[in-house]
Simulated assay, not measured.
Amino acid sequence: MVKNSLPTSPFEKKGNVVLLLLLPSLILIFGLLIYPLIYSFYISLLDFNLTRPGVAPFIGLNNYVRALSDDLFLSSFLRTIYFSVVTVCTEIVLGVAIALLLKQKFRGRGIVRGLAILPWALPTVVNGIMWKWIYNANYGALNALLFNLGLISEYQVWLGEPMRALHLVMLANIWKETPVGVLMILATLEGIPEELYEASRVDGANTWQRFRYITLPLIKPMIGILFLIKIIWAVREFDLIYIVTRGGPGGGTTVLSYLAYLNSFKFFKMGYGSAIAYFLIALVMVIGIPYIIAITRSQGGLFE
Rank of each mutant, 00 (worst) to 15 (best):
A56S: 06
V126Y: 05
L118A: 07
I111C: 00
L50M: 02
R113A: 14
G108C: 03
S25M: 15
E12L: 15
V18K: 12
V112H: 08
A99L: 08
L22K: 06
V96P: 02
A141H: 12
V93S: 12
I129N: 01
R66E: 03
Y39D: 07
V86H: 00
S40N: 03
V65N: 14
R52E: 13
L74C: 08
T90D: 01
A137C: 12
Y135G: 01
G140I: 01
N49H: 08
S40M: 05
L68I: 09
I98L: 01
E91M: 02
G110K: 10
W131S: 00
I92S: 09
A67Y: 06
K105E: 12
T90A: 10
L32N: 11
V93E: 09
P10C: 09
N136W: 02
G31K: 10
P24M: 04
L45A: 11
P119V: 00
D71K: 15
P36R: 04
G95M: 12
P10K: 09
Y64G: 05
Y64V: 05
I129W: 00
L21P: 06
I129D: 05
L74P: 00
R109C: 15
P57C: 05
V86P: 00
G128R: 04
Q104I: 07
L72G: 13
L74S: 11
P24S: 03
L45M: 12
P10H: 09
Y35M: 03
N136A: 09
I129M: 00
E91R: 03
T87Y: 03
L118V: 04
S76Y: 06
Y64P: 07
A56L: 01
G15T: 07
T80E: 04
N49T: 01
S69G: 14
L22V: 10
N136F: 05
I34K: 01
L102A: 05
N136H: 01
W133E: 15
L46W: 06
Y135S: 02
Q104F: 12
L94C: 00
P36G: 07
L115N: 06
S84T: 04
I117K: 13
Y35A: 00
W120P: 14
